[in-house]
Design a protein around this nucleic acid. Structure first.
Lengths: 347, 347
DNA sequence: ATCACTCGTTGCAACGTTGCAATAAATGCG
DNA sequence: CGCATTTATTGCAACGTTGCAACGAGTGAT
């Protein structure tokens, strides 16, 4: 018949080992909460002796500021959000991107939350959700469109973000992008060098701004070198599929088969190359092929194919650095970078 | 000389459009904060009329509970953490996993944070960090080892988690795993059916529990069918590489070349198959090949190769469902599932 | 009319943090 | 020595939420 003690059940959280808070340090040092808080944030008005005392105590109890407390008080979430749309991606794109971001936030307070979405429409809603609920301090978006609605939304709200890819908007915003123009120039030049007179470009998604950059550059470069150029958009075809392979097979038989080919996707390139081979087309004799590459797979299967590397890991690192600087208040104009393509000529 | 107004500068956050809080609803309905809070969480003791009034008001102002407030008060983060180790992964594994998790947390309060780590040692530290700082309500780990230290750590702390992969621990914990034994049985049976007498298994990582399951099953199945079996661990070789291709090439020339081959990685399989072809080995005549598959690439390059599919997306969904049930207090014993392999025989 | 009880609602304190105004102690100056 | 100024520290309130004890009003029994 023992009644439960009157002061039982006070703990809301599991008290397993009780986290250290400012209060812990306060009691330990005999200083007030405010002083401790101030001190840990480097308060300049404090005595050196005090600061050391606080720091020692904090270290000894392994103090780490409570994210919920900070967030509630300051509104700062210490979170950056990566918004993935579900569209056609390069091999292991997400993986490299995420590890790049992870590398860049290592040693900072920041956490990464990933919001996976299935299409770009939904991804606008995701961004809106983040803005309205202030659920992150900054956002990284990928596969940016020329007049991307997510970019517009975040600019309207003056919310820190960085896009992987550029836009057409007049107002500047932070971005990091693969230098698609340099890639295209490099590719065309290489093909011309090898004697090509008729270059075809295959591209997977004509809704990104990237598309326009590449196509425009191709046309100019081809004109400059006096060679023919064509573009084929393969948006509707699954990158790795029998259909894609058949596309290569059909190409092999065409009377107007190009003698130079540029492809912006490793996956689609592999499929097409298989198809071309099926049709008896021989690489480096009947056709020259150049492909953008994000993994080692293409080079393992077709070691002879020239590739141009896009380092998605490095892009993740750079995007994050830009974003953090943006969050710290740097103006957008100074936060725009390109990554130069790295050519791997095989022959 | 106008002094700034005495009550200026009160807002800590940007007041852009001011988020709705319980207070907003309270003022709107004339009810107290407590009542509003209670009502929104379905308080059974309230008048039906009140609840509807609150709900209407909440809807009209688009109320969403503040995560920081809830977290501070209750300790509940509404976050699940995915701990990725950086080891050898199947193609687009991260991507499919993340999208599966995204699918399963859709419509819930939960957010996903991803903690990318470069090796398994670091990933133990990551888990420790999550536990000590209560930075998530539950954890998903992948590439689980037989006596995985992360699992041990979380069991010791009685912290909700689920592992992709099983362990040898006696105490039960939630997991979801590919049914590697069924995969192996299926593969051996198929090869034997095709007339193979000498089966080789190539596997990439002998530190996961998965490894032991597969090897044990292989040996038993081979013995049962009266065929020879061998295992080769390819841990040190990069999955897509000239080296891996060379491995296939060398295999082609070996006097003791097997007539049946099982591979647990699509990437390595592609490389090896290229090497075998280089050596003049013909598929389905000189050797029969079976591979575990997580994307479409292998089938596009080698349409004739039998594959067995592991659906990583579905695994992400299932892992998340199990974890959420675990967080809600279900016992571990009831939260253990396997996913059955799906065979794609091509001939 | 008083009591005990239920029903529906409310006030208060606390979670961990930080900005600000206020304090106390030490110093400088006339 | 008194007053103003600087230096070092502190108390208080607030961010948004929830658990709990307490409240007043109504009901029914005594």
């Amino acid at each position: 018949m023992t009644k439960s003690k009157p002061d039982a059940g006070r703990n809301i959280r599991q008290p397993r080992g009780k986290r250290a808070t400012l209060k812990t340090i306060s009691e330990l040092t005999g200083l007030s909460l405010s002083t401790v808080s101030l001190s840990l944030r480097g308060g300049a008005s404090l005595k050196e002796e005090t600061r050391q005392k606080v720091e020692a105590a904090a270290r000894s109890v392994g103090y780490v500021p409570d994210r919920a407390g900070v967030r509630l008080r300051t509104g700062k979430t210490n979170v950056i959000a990566l918004v993935l749309d579900g569209s056609d991606e390069a091999i292991d794109f997400s993986r490299h991107m995420i590890r790049g971001i992870g590398e860049a936030i290592g040693g900072t307070r920041y956490h990464l939350t990933v919001m996976p979405e299935f299409d770009r429409v939904a991804s606008v809603e995701t961004v809106r959700y983040i803005l309205e609920n202030r659920t992150a301090d900054g956002v990284i978006i990928t596969h940016t469109g020329a007049r991307d609605r997510r970019v517009q939304l975040m600019m309207d709200h003056d919310f820190p973000f960085v896009s992987h890819g550029r836009t057409e908007f007049f107002t500047p915003h932070p971005f990091h992008d693969f230098h698609a123009e340099a890639f295209t120039e490099l590719a065309v030049e290489r093909l011309v060098e090898k004697g090509c007179r008729d270059v075809m470009l295959a591209i997977g998604d004509d809704t990104t701004n990237n598309y326009h950059n590449i196509v425009r550059t191709l046309e100019r470069a081809a004109a400059r070198h006096g060679v023919k150029s064509r573009v084929v958009v393969q948006k509707a075809i699954r990158p790795a599929s029998a259909e894609m392979r058949q596309f290569g097979r059909d190409l092999a038989d065409r009377a107007d088969r190009p003698d130079g080919f540029i492809c912006d996707s490793e996956t689609r390139a592999i499929s097409m190359l298989c198809g071309l081979q099926d049709g008896g087309v021989m690489l480096e004799r009947d056709i020259h092929f150049i492909c953008k590459q994000t993994s080692d797979i293409l080079s393992t299967v077709f070691p002879g194919v020239d590739t141009i590397e896009e380092d998605v890991y490095a892009a993740g690192v750079e995007l994050t650095r830009l974003l953090l600087r943006r969050i710290d208040g740097e103006p957008a104009e100074t936060l725009q970078t390109l990554s130069e393509p790295v050519a791997h000529w095989r022959s």
